[in-house]
Design a protein around this nucleic acid. Structure first.
Lengths: 143, 143
DNA sequence: GAGATTCATTTAATATATTAAATATAATAA
DNA sequence: TTATTATATTTAATATATTAAATGAATCTC
């Protein structure tokens, strides 16, 4: 007979774990005037160069209406440039400005160091296991 | 020689996993007119009865200034009642109304079923492992 | 090729998050 | 006791989340 399984409020645990991880990197983002969302967007732009905003939304996990405002403020702050897609006028594309790219580089190195620290303090094995389990949970949605 | 370790954007994975889990329960919350935050608050009140708002903030993982608004709207909607703490006039206490408590009961049962479903589709072992790993990650913050 | 339909993004309205500053009360020190 | 300091909550200002509706452009159908 299996023992009673204790549920732990999984959404809250996931939220707490996320906060715990970001607690180490967030101060650096703020020092450079970036919100969490702005950093996610910038990181996507650093990986892809010029890219459709729809794709940015999916990869940065930001809903369309939120992204509209985020990009507007980033453009205001000289981090990105927007333009209509020439082929499909419904779409719009974004790219990071030189200043934005410089920030991506600097902060990416900082984040890498943070992963190194996590590997050490948590252990590579546990980190790898966590990745797998999270993938499994994410897969559940498609069930 | 260990192979190069591939980092996976842990904060994003945790966010995605959370969304994946909540995707199943959120519709029910919305049907009853509850936001995610309101549900977290209600759940805490269901567990503790009358309780200080500061403690609600900690347990529901909501910052003070946000909680002020959340509780105001919940009071407006007849889900909770607020009052000043008699001993310490700085503090304030909250409790769920009968209507709020009824909602907690109904939705708690729904959530329990959801955990049952997760145990089945993901497996009890994996779920238990995930809890442990998340606890470890959360512990990192205190390092 | 005009009209219906689909698709990408934005606007609008309300709720929540975030950070700093203000307020009010309690506890403490001089 | 009075001034100081600490604590709990709220207000304020700005950013983001959420849902529905609107806009504008492409595609499809007849």
């Amino acid at each position: 007979m299996s023992p009673t399984f204790v549920h732990r409020n999984l959404p809250r645990l996931l939220l707490q774990a996320r906060e715990s991880v970001m607690a180490h990197t967030r101060p650096s983002l703020r020092e450079h005037g970036l919100s969490d969302q702005q950093w996610r967007v910038l990181r996507v732009l650093g990986e892809h160069g010029t890219i459709e905003t729809g794709r940015v939304a999916r990869e940065a996990f930001i809903l369309g209406p939120s992204l509209t405002g985020v990009l507007a403020r980033m453009e205001r702050d000289g981090l990105v440039r927007r333009a209509r897609d020439a082929q499909d006028q419904r779409r719009s594309v974004v790219e990071a400005t030189p200043r934005g790219l410089k920030l991506v580089g600097k902060l990416s190195r900082m984040i890498e160091e943070h992963y190194g620290w996590m590997e050490q303090s948590l252990g590579k094995r546990k980190l790898a296991e966590l990745y797998v389990l999270l993938d499994d949970v994410i897969e559940l949605e498609r069930t």
